[in-house]
Design a protein around this nucleic acid. Structure first.
Length: 400
RNA sequence: GGAGGGGUACCGAAGUGGCUAAACGGGGCGGUCUGUAAAAUCGCUGGCUCUGCCUUCGAUGGUUCGAAUCCAUCCCCCUCCA
């Protein structure tokens, strides 16, 4: 745990980079009491991989934990069975109990890279939601109105577009809000798209005679494509447990205009550091490639440590900037295989899916050995000992 | 319960008997270029024992010399009315 920080320092650490804080004044008052706050982060564990997007809020919860607050990592096992409608233009599939548990276990395993699970309180909302029963649920439902729910952009849009909205989806925000009541949360973290749900927590807490929780809303990280939010299903993501070289490379592929966002949300720089980098870019003092590399290195370091991140950066520079062949390229033995032509060997090595794909690549001049480009039917026995380069970043060393 | 619309390749979307392995866009991949796995630009994008053959247009069965396209049955989705 860090040494005790002043209230102002804590506010700085806990809210930097946030898209919105409701309300900072309330947070100050809570901190001034000097007692550890209950900070809640609820997750829908249905996502099979944790991306840098999820990491934004997870790291913020870790910040609360490090400052000595009670960090509650809430697994929405009961709510996952409904499916969060936030930001969705369709209904989420409901999951059965076993699927939810399996997903939660996989999620927790990965989340250990960000949160110290021995310090964090892991809870499940089935603890209290199941005890509520049908009449309890109805009572909860009486706390809000259809009109209020339809204020939400995602519901409204679906309503206008004649897309179905199922009744249980309308109840979802209330379930999530009730979690805050059950936990007596002082602060709830979430992405901006969660604003409505988190506000529901404030309303319900007031209804139950509690002091409302403070909301710390974090921005949604844009995906690698530079247009939509980072998500597994869109394929524009970086997973936190990805291998360092892969992570570094993916981060280098973001459009230049996303550099600032990634410095702040992925690399976890302070706003001051980010401003400095952006100013340097603006004035031409720094080259986007280098700033991007710094961002990528710092991000990789968060999950893999500094030495590994530095190595990934070196390897990237060697492979792409200097076009060198990596020393640890995968290799394949020709042995006494029946076919030793380029197409067959690339398939056998798993570099491409099919003979036809290998042929296409070779025809496009993507397969080379040194300076020469190889045809798909070239016999690799004549290239034993050489390292083939396929496209920009696939390599294969040929052994006798 | 009644009426109507729809299910096409990774995604979106054309195509209504042969010229269709299936237009076009996105995505992905490759070439060129570059300060970058950015941008730009050109190209590729089912498989194989490859001038041909096999599999593919919700599923199954049928009509036909020939079907994504016609017919039948079934499954799934959406809208309107109640």
């Amino acid at each position: 745990m860090d040494p005790i920080k002043s209230v102002e320092e804590q506010i700085g650490i806990l809210t930097h980079g946030a898209a919105e804080v409701i309300e900072t004044e309330e947070l100050r008052r809570k901190l001034e009491r000097g007692k550890p706050l209950v900070a809640k982060l609820g997750v829908d564990t249905t996502a099979p991989v944790i991306t840098l997007g999820h990491a934004v809020v997870l790291r913020r919860l870790a910040a609360f934990q490090r400052l000595g607050h009670r960090a509650v990592f809430l697994i929405g096992d009961e709510t996952s069975r409904v499916g969060d409608p936030s930001g969705r233009s369709d209904t989420r599939p409901a999951l059965d109990e076993a699927a939810v548990e399996a997903a939660a276990a996989a999620f927790l395993e990965q989340v250990g890279a960000i949160l110290d699970l021995s310090q964090v309180e892991v809870r499940r909302n089935s603890e209290w939601l199941r005890a509520l029963g049908f009449s309890g649920a109805l009572q909860l439902a009486s706390r809000s109105t259809v009109a209020r729910m339809l204020e939400r952009e995602d519901f409204l849009k679906r309503f206008r577009d004649n897309q179905p909205i199922y009744l249980h989806e309308l109840i979802y925000p209330l379930m999530q809000g009730y979690d805050s009541v059950a936990l007596k949360a002082d602060v709830e973290l979430g992405a901006t798209e969660q604003k409505f749900n988190l506000l529901m927590g404030r309303q319900l807490q007031r209804d139950y005679g509690m002091e409302p929780q403070v909301l710390v809303l974090m921005p949604i990280l844009t995906g690698l494509d530079g247009s939509q939010k980072m998500s597994k299903s869109l394929g524009n993501y970086v997973a936190i447990n990805e291998n360092p070289d892969e992570m570094f490379g993916k981060l280098m592929s973001i459009p230049d205009r996303l550099i600032g966002e990634y410095l702040l949300l992925a690399a976890d720089m302070t706003p001051g550091e980010v401003t400095e980098r952006l100013w340097n870019l603006e004035s031409g003092a720094a080259n986007p490639r280098d700033v991007k590399a710094e961002m990528a290195e710092r991000t990789v370091a968060i999950y893999n440590g500094r030495p590994t991140a530095a190595a990934a950066r070196d390897r990237f520079a060697a492979t792409f900037s200097r076009r060198e062949v990596p020393a640890d390229a995968p290799s394949i033995r020709l042995g006494d295989a029946e076919r030793t032509d380029v197409a067959a060997v690339l398939v056998r090595a798993g570099l491409v899916q099919s003979i036809t794909e290998a042929r296409r690549l070779a025809d496009q001049g993507a397969v080379r050995s040194g300076e020469s480009r190889l045809g798909w039917d070239e016999d690799l026995r004549r290239h034993a000992g050489a390292t083939l380069r396929v496209g920009k970043h696939r390599f294969l060393r040929i052994e006798e």
